[in-house]
Design a binder for these strands. Sequence first.
DNA 1: ATCAGATATATGTCATGTCACATATACTAC
DNA 2: GTAGTATATGTGACATGACATATATCTGAT
Lengths: 204, 204
Amino acid sequence: MSLRFAILGFLSVRPFSGYDLKRAFDQSVRHFWTADQAAIYRTLGELESKGLVEHERIAQDLRPDRNLFRPTEAGLAALDDWLTTPSPAAPRREPFLVRLFFSGRIDPDALLALVRAELDSVHDELRAFGDYVASLEAQVPDATDAWKAAMIGPLLTLTNGVSLGVAYRDWLTRIEGQLEGGSLTAELLLADLRAQLPDTDSSG
Amino acid sequence: MSLRFAILGFLSVRPFSGYDLKRAFDQSVRHFWTADQAAIYRTLGELESKGLVEHERIAQDLRPDRNLFRPTEAGLAALDDWLTTPSPAAPRREPFLVRLFFSGRIDPDALLALVRAELDSVHDELRAFGDYVASLEAQVPDATDAWKAAMIGPLLTLTNGVSLGVAYRDWLTRIEGQLEGGSLTAELLLADLRAQLPDTDSSG
DNA sequence: ATCAGATATATGTCATGTCACATATACTAC
DNA sequence: GTAGTATATGTGACATGACATATATCTGAT
């Protein structure tokens, strides 16, 4: 499970409480990893029982006590080990594609509605990326070199979200056009595929 | 869970045994949905207890008996209902991006190795798509109209796999180049992002 | 002869993830 | 007053998924 390593990763930057971690997940890695609050607290407990993190109870005047977690040496070693080890391809689970796969059963209008609903959510996602990028750009003028270096990893994941989001939007838009134009045929789709695929030794 | 609807979808085409279903998943929808064999048998049992599928035991001379499942009227109705209802965006889980996000901790060579390992697996995937497309193209000349119509859904999911696979490959290749050239900076990545993003109301 | 592999179905168990709930305090808005 | 929101930490129950294992028969290779 990557959750424990994602948590160790955050803790390698600065100490976090469970509550902080939940917000960090929601704000910064939501587009490629989500974490349930219950899972975070349980994973912290598990990591502590394995000696990979330790915590300190901080009393606060106006709020409940916080349990501030930080990684141990063993925790950082486990993190670095995981970071440098490629993991097997993650299985994908795309309910929208399951619907498309069996879309022969529903009428073209219902299919078009599905495609448009999906397009809406991609547009929302791209807009959210745009807002986030704008807020980062505003911070650049007075950013330190250390901050810029630390942002490279997060920025790389952002470029992934944007590149794939744009590709997904373009793919949906193409389908939308074909559905509207009534030109959605097996031959057309095969030709599309052939045009996009790298040449698979066509000269034998 | 989409698994039960994916199963109903297959059964809406023709009767399947659990064993057949496992092979159908592995062969045709592997790139966007995987199914554990145990999950298939259990889900079939669950669907049957809800009256959405029924089965018939077929004795065979040379092999173990097969339990052939087919959908009931209620099952087909549940399928069509699900097919036309958009589902909320599925959470993504990308261990590779978690590694990238925290890649500031590891040295650039290790990061380059990670990127190249990922590129290898994308190339393999695209090659598999290419082979599959070639096999489909070979079948087109003597395909019936009914077959072509039935292939539209599956072909749509293929175009998704190829479009996103190509985008993912291109994104990885860009990072590989930037890592090799030593030009990976926060400024460059932000400029990349800005160039790709649709204009977010630049004129207020 | 024997062993691996394909066909075929099924259970047991563990890990993981999600949802709902429980507890407690303080600030803000109505 | 009191309802809602934010801070903060947790538990219990259930759903889902992955892995290992069990059974049984036939085919083909060594």
